[in-house]
Design a protein around this nucleic acid. Sequence first.
DNA 1: TAAATAGTGTCTGTTAGACAGTATTTT
DNA 2: AAAATACTGTCTAACAGACACTATTTA
Lengths: 302, 302
Amino acid sequence: MSKQPVTDRNGITEEQFLKTYDAGVYERPSVTVDMLIFTVMEREQNNYRKLSEKSLQLLLIQRGEHPYLGQWALPGGFVGVHESLDEAARRELFTETNIDNIYMEQLYTWGEVQRDPRMRVISCSYMALVDRTALNVQAGDDAADAAWFEVSHEILEASRRELEQGYEQDQFIKITLQSDKVTLSGVVKVTESVQGHVSKIQREIVQSEGFAFDHLMMVQYAIERLRGKVEYTDIIFNLMPPLFTLSELQRVYEIILGKELLAAAFRRKIADRVMETEDFTRDAGHRPSKLYRYNMNRASNQ
Amino acid sequence: MSKQPVTDRNGITEEQFLKTYDAGVYERPSVTVDMLIFTVMEREQNNYRKLSEKSLQLLLIQRGEHPYLGQWALPGGFVGVHESLDEAARRELFTETNIDNIYMEQLYTWGEVQRDPRMRVISCSYMALVDRTALNVQAGDDAADAAWFEVSHEILEASRRELEQGYEQDQFIKITLQSDKVTLSGVVKVTESVQGHVSKIQREIVQSEGFAFDHLMMVQYAIERLRGKVEYTDIIFNLMPPLFTLSELQRVYEIILGKELLAAAFRRKIADRVMETEDFTRDAGHRPSKLYRYNMNRASNQ
DNA sequence: TAAATAGTGTCTGTTAGACAGTATTTT
DNA sequence: AAAATACTGTCTAACAGACACTATTTA
C-alpha cells in the first residue's frame, strides 16, 4: 500500500533522507546497565540435625576507581552503540558469573540528572536470578573485588499525612547487606502520594553507608519487584536447584516475602507448580523429605 | 567515617578526579521518551435511553517528517542532558495535553539496535492516564497531526510447543487503533519460553499497518501493564472523572480487562475503594444512579 | 405498562488461615 | 525416648461466581 516513495515537504524520499541524515551534535547522555544478581545460599548450622538456614544474596563490586572509590556498587557498564540493552545486560551477567543461561528481566531506568558525579548517565537496571548450584565457579574468583552480600531489609518507620485532596505516606526502609568481611547499610525513603487524581511514588536515599551512586535505591526497588512477582509468577524457581524439597522451597518464599508461611496452606498452594520425584533427601538427621522439581507444563503460569 | 580524602592508585582524590574528568569521545546512543497517553471517552448512543458506551483511547501523532513520514507514532522526544527522564516525560505530556497534573509511570525501556533507522536510539516509554473531563482543550487542537484512537485488541492465535527442557508459547495479539478518520492495525507476537530454569519473554512485530518505529510493541506492552495493574492497584481512578456511577466504573474495568463482570460481585469488591455522595445522575431516561467518588483514605491501597 | 438501568439477597463452591495431629528418621 | 522435620486432616471464615429478584425512573 505505502510502497510508492513517500516524499516530504522538500520532495525527499525516506531512502534519500536516511542516506544524508546527520545524527547531529546534540549533547547526549551516556547509557549504562546495572545488574542486580540475586541467588540463595545456605548457611551451615552448628547443630547438624537442624536444617541449614537460607539467605538471599546479592552480588556487589568494590570500586577501584573514582568516584566512590572503595565503596560498593552493582556490577554494570556502558551500553555500546552496537549492542542492545539486553545484550549489554547479558554481557555483564556473563562477565560476573561465567554462566550464560540466566533468568533476567529489565526493572527500571534511572534518569536523575545528577546521579553520577562524572557526567550525565542514564542507567537501566536488570534483575537476574541464579541457582547457586549452577555457579560452578564462585563468582568473583577472578575479580577479588566482587562479593556476595546477604540481603535483609526492614521497615523502620511509616508515617502518613492526610492532605486536603488526598494523602502522603512515607516508608523508611532500612537495607542491610552483609558479606564475609563488610556490612553495608542504608535507608531509602519511599513516598507514596495521592493528590486529587494524581498518585505518585518517589524514592530518596536518606542514609547510606558504603554504597556507590544511587544503587541502594535500585536494591530497594529490586526487592520490591522480586517480592511482588514471587506471588503471581513462577520466577522463584530460577533461584532453586533442579531438585528441591518443599520445605526448602517454602524457606525461599519466606525469606523473599519476609514472613512465615504455614506448611499446610503452602503445600496446597504450590501443589500444581511442582512435580514429585522418586527421590528423597538423605543423611538429614531426621525424617527424609521427598524431592520435587519445577512443573513447567501446567495449564497457566501467568 | 570516610570523610578524609580517599585517593586512588595515582594518589588522586575524588574531587581532583571529577575536576579533570573528561566524559570522553565514545559514541553514545540518543535517548528519547515515548508517551502512551490513555483516556476513556464516551460514544453517544442513538437510543438516548441506553447508556453511552465507553472506549479506551490512545493519543497518536502523525509524522510529518522522515522516517515513517505520514505514519502514526507515540508522542515523544529527545531527553535533554539537563533534564531527568521524568522531567522529559512530563514536558512531553504537557506539550500534548496542556495539563500538568497527570498520573504517569515509567513502563519499559526499548533498546534494540535497529529500532530507529536514523541512528541508535534508546527509548524509555511512559504510560499516562488522563480523565477525559480534565482535557478542557481537546488535545491536538493546535497540533492538527494529533488524534485520539480507540484501542481494541484480541488474541488471534495461541500455540504451544513442548520442548525437552520446557516449552515455548506464542500469542499473536492483534491491536486495532481507530480514529475518526483512520484505522490502524497490526499484530504483535509475544513468545514466552521456559528452557530448563530460564524463562524469557520476547516480543516481535509480525505485521504493522501505519505504525512508526516499534511503537506497536509499546502499545501492546502498555495494554498488558494496564490490565495487570488495574487488578491490584487503584490506578483506574486516574481515568475517571471526580464523580462517577458504579456502572460507569464497572464499564471502564470491563473495557480494560476485556471481559464482562457481574454487577453484584463487582460492587462488593470495590465497595471500600469508593465513597458514596448525596448526588444522583439526572435525565438518564431510566432510574437515576448514585454518584461516587474515589476513596483514597482507606486502610491500604497497595 | 414497557424499557432501561440501579441495586440487593442469597446460595454454592473454592480457598486461605489456623491448628492439631500423625509419620518417619537419627541420636 | 527425644529431637527434629515431614506431611495430612479438618474446621472456619472470607470471598468470588452465579443468578434471581426488587427498585426506580422516563417514554
